[in-house]
Every structure is written in structure tokens, then in C-alpha cells.
């Protein structure tokens, strides 16, 4: 190997390490809002930093959405298995709490929206 070979090997290794570190830093923007949908329609968009409790009506009854301290959860639900309540508090952009039986979904948004996946 020539000196030039070693040089490019070192430079490109360094480039890949730097690029990798940049890519692995967190890219989600700060959480800003909470979007509540019922039956596929957005019923309210709330500030995640303002503590409040909102009741959302679905086909089974009323789901209670609670926002407190920059986090959000479903605290009461008429569904039978309570998966939505067991999901607990969520606070990161892109996170969501979903109650399928009552067709209520709570999603945290903020920063730049990212795709989950695109398929062809």
C-alpha cells in the first residue's frame, strides 16, 4: 500500500464515522401538540404543554384524554381490554395512544414530520 492508500483509508473511515454519528443523533423535533382523532376525523389539536383533560366520544362511549407535564395518556375508556390506558404516558414526537374499539387516537406531533415508511 502506498502512503496515498493509507491517507484515503483514514480519511474515508473518518468521514463514515462522522456521518454515522450525525445520523444516529436524535432527529425527532420537540413535542409541541397533541392531535386527537375520533372515527378517523381530527376532533382537536391541543398544546402538549397546557395541562388539561378532554373527553372524546366514540361508538362505545367516552374516552378521557389527559395532558399533564408535557405528556399525554388516555386515562379512562369504555373499551373492554384497556390497551389504550395500559399504553401509559407518551411524550415523544410521533408517539401515539390508540383505542381501536372506541376508534380514538392520540398522537404527539412537533418538529419536522417524518415518514414511517414508503413502499412501491
Amino acid at each position: 500500500m502506498t502512503a496515498g492508500d493509507w491517507l484515503v483509508a483514514l480519511l474515508l473511515s473518518a468521514l463514515i464515522v462522522v456521518a454515522s454519528v450525525l445520523a444516529w443523533r436524535s432527529q425527532t423535533g420537540p413535542a409541541e401538540k397533541v392531535i386527537i382523532t375520533a372515527g378517523g376525523k381530527t376532533v382537536s389539536v391541543l398544546d402538549i404543554h397546557r395541562d388539561q383533560v378532554v373527553d372524546v366520544d366514540g361508538p362505545l362511549g367516552t374516552s378521557r384524554v389527559e395532558i399533564r407535564g408535557g405528556k399525554v395518556r388516555i386515562s379512562a375508556s369504555p373499551c373492554s381490554n384497556h390497551l389504550c390506558i395500559l399504553r401509559g404516558w407518551v411524550q415523544t414526537t410521533g408517539d401515539s395512544v390508540v383505542c381501536l374499539p372506541n376508534r380514538v387516537a392520540v398522537t404527539v406531533v412537533g418538529g419536522d414530520p417524518y415518514y414511517d415508511a414508503v413502499t412501491f
Partner: peptide, 17 residues
Amino acid sequence: VPVLKLGAVGYSIVASV
């Protein structure tokens, strides 16, 4: 820059990256 010229290994690494 003939002092730091590349050989087969250097070219190959450049190409793959």
C-alpha cells in the same frame, strides 16, 4: 500529487465508499 498517489487498494476503497 505524485507523492501521495494512490495504488490499487486506495482506488478500491475510494470506489466502494
